[in-house]
Design a protein around this nucleic acid. Structure first.
Lengths: 404, 404
DNA sequence: CGACTTTTTTAGATCGATCTAAAACTTCGC
DNA sequence: GCGAAGTTTTAGATCGATCTAAAAAAGTCG
């Protein structure tokens, strides 16, 4: 049976210790763009891996037959299959997908490049993707561009080096439509998720921020508000434009003039706070504030409280995203959910369809928003707005068990 | 191009469209344990991949030379190197790591199997791991066992099929020490993170829950509390035992008797709420409550408020983890951080060390806790406890910018 | 029984890189 | 000018699977 080495006889099977040559010349070069990204290899005393050849020899059949058994081909006789299965169990075989893949193409692997990994919403998105992939026997490489377009480019290249079948990209802030060209992803199947990239006309999955903003704004109008402001950003990401547009659409429908639109630089809590404080200091503030997202809304509510104004009573506040804290905050935040988990699931499914058939026409999947009415808009629970199903003060969407 | 047919001559470069044979017989079998996990392949009209051979031909050198250039070997002459680099740039070469890996062993890939992916703390951990890996040119397969030991086992197998160099495991709830044997990970480098696995004596990285509990308990004692209860769980995860032990150590040191230890089944907000409500209904409640974690603490505070008790004034409440909401909640929660990002970083580093040298002795890295004093313990800001640096009411650990 | 299917098995090429050992080319001393 | 020594380059085997095309075995039938 295959000793492979022409002359050296092989000893037993379990061969421990195996003092391998340590280290490896560490040559770091100038960084030519096509070199394998990363550093010098640090290979090591590999354990003796059981291969198809071992199984074949043990079962007394050919390697090809074993391969057929692995792939559940109907060609092999039941008896032979049993023999081979037994041999695999006996020897503790572990399939080597890279080798298989080298010959046959598909790797059952996809890449997910996130612009941010710690935000709960992206974690949900990841989870949705993983759900679908796991069911299909895929695994995802997941990495984080940290809103850095250059890093994103590098990561896309690295994904390809690893031979992914496709990628889901949640684009970093200044992502241009050429991102895929720049990263040499010839015809790598790709899906953009969560944030639109201007000029990119391929597959996209994302929430309908505009419609969501319309929902919450309509809700405020329905509660009688006529002077509504927007606390939002100036960042170069697509969702901002969509949100602002939705906000304005709702106002226009009711022939209302837009209240002040206050910019935020970073779109975080501190920024929302600062923006709202400035607005309040200017006097004659709106009776309701639509915020870019929940986090900004938290800051806004803090500023209100500081001024002795009660959110939901003196000034209505609404957000966007329905982050976990939204239901926990007091007053609980009225907002709309962008269902990142659903977005993830749809993105994964779309990517797999694309991998399956690269030439199908591009698809855009827009996940509809759901309005979540809580207290910060002033619609006291029980008095429910007409717009949608209200959520209990403490959201129970996550864990089981009776919520108080 | 690449029509795959032997006789057709090869044409130009850009040839779109490419009507490939659709579908693929979907053969689903009985599920023999050694078959490649997953389904039948769905291979497809692969894009024309540029290989070393193409580069070699274009540059007029041998494949071996190109390979040397790729790996930045000092053996090649500068002139040759330049020629090859140019050829690679010209043809748009993308390194094929799977092929390289097949021959040479190390894949620059690791697996991360999480018990839960959506919890912010695990997202932080993931982020920490990604930080380190990215710097070293590694990529991680990330998957989610959903606290399901069987699924976890499957995922570990799948990771090996993909040829990872090692795995970081955040074990699911009922993980036994044999998990790695069961998943046939012979001598796959492995690091267990965040939760201990009883009986597993390999590499481990995790926070020091015990010490953290001691910190917060000591803090409460320092504030004058003498009757302190514990709201905690009964789940079969190691951290619970550690936490309870820390709590008791602190009490013992001050010769205090433990207040009631109330079990929680699920360790979420609703459960904390229920547990606290029961405790309060029983009358004669403790003056301070140490909670299993922040989320439970939120539930507890809700129950207090419902009874007309103000957390931090009538009853002190402390948590554990310092989740993002902790600083946002009113009253802001006194807690200690378990620095999941640091845990992630250390785990990744340790794993890489282990990959580098499989025979080094096992290592246990315990990340020390940091006490975060806010309002829920009753130590009004300004009045700071003696124990540690206090945090501002709104934690500013995340985003930049001036926090109000 | 021999020709002809049909079913099952297999040898050998192949994927795209690395690795080894040897070949080819330089340089140099004498 | 020739062999030794050093520097560059290369042919060919190799990793562990899949794929193709053909061989071997089994079954059919006039």
């Amino acid at each position: 049976m295959q000793t492979r080495k022409p002359h050296k006889p092989r000893g037993g099977d379990a061969q421990p210790g195996q003092t391998a040559p340590k280290g490896a010349a560490r040559a770091e070069g100038s960084g030519a763009s096509h070199a394998p990204s990363g550093h010098a290899a640090a290979a090591h005393g590999a354990p003796p891996r059981v291969t198809l050849n071992h199984i074949a020899a043990y079962a007394g059949v050919s390697r090809a037959t074993v391969s057929l058994v692995l792939r559940k081909s109907p060609l092999v006789a039941d008896e032979t299959r049993a023999k081979v299965d037994a041999a695999m169990a006996e020897l503790g075989y572990v399939y080597n997908r890279r080798a298989a893949n080298l010959r046959s193409g598909a790797s059952r692997t996809i890449g997910l490049v996130l612009c941010e990994i710690t935000t709960p919403n992206y974690a949900q998105l990841t989870s949705g993707i993983d759900d679908v992939l796991d069911g299909e026997g895929y695994v995802a490489f997941i990495t984080n561009s940290e809103e850095d377009a250059a890093r994103q480019r590098r990561l896309l290249v690295r994904m390809q080096e690893h031979g992914v079948d496709g990628v889901v990209l949640v684009p970093a802030e200044d992502t241009k439509a050429e991102v895929f060209d720049d990263a040499h992803c010839g015809n790598l199947p790709r899906v953009v998720a969560q944030r639109r990239v201007e000029g990119f006309s391929g597959d996209y999955v994302g929430p309908d921020y505009g419609a969501g903003m319309e929902l919450v704004t309509e809700h405020l109008i329905g509660l009688g508000h006529r002077h509504i402001g927007f606390i939002g950003g100036v960042r170069r990401i697509a969702p901002l434009a969509e949100r602002l547009a939705g906000f304005r659409r709702a106002l226009r429908r009711h022939r209302l003039k837009s209240g002040p639109v206050v910019p935020c630089a970073v779109l975080d809590r501190a920024d929302g706070y600062a923006a709202a404080r400035d607005l309040l200091a200017a006097g004659d503030h709106p009776t309701a504030l639509v915020c870019y997202n929940d986090v900004v809304a938290f800051g806004v509510m803090l500023a209100l409280a500081e001024r002795g104004l009660t959110p939901g009573k003196d000034v209505a506040v609404v957000g966007c995203d329905d982050v976990a804290e939204a239901g926990l905050h007091r007053p609980a935040l009225t907002t709309f959910t962008t269902d990142p988990r659903v977005v993830g699931r749809e993105a994964a499914r779309l990517l797999l369809r694309r991998v399956e058939n690269p030439s199908r026409p591009p698809e855009q999947i827009i996940v509809p928003p759901r309005l979540i009415i809580r207290q910060s808009c002033g619609a006291a629970p029980g008095q429910r707005g007409r717009a949608a199903k209200a959520a209990p003060p403490l959201s129970r969407r996550r864990a089981g068990g009776p919520t108080p």
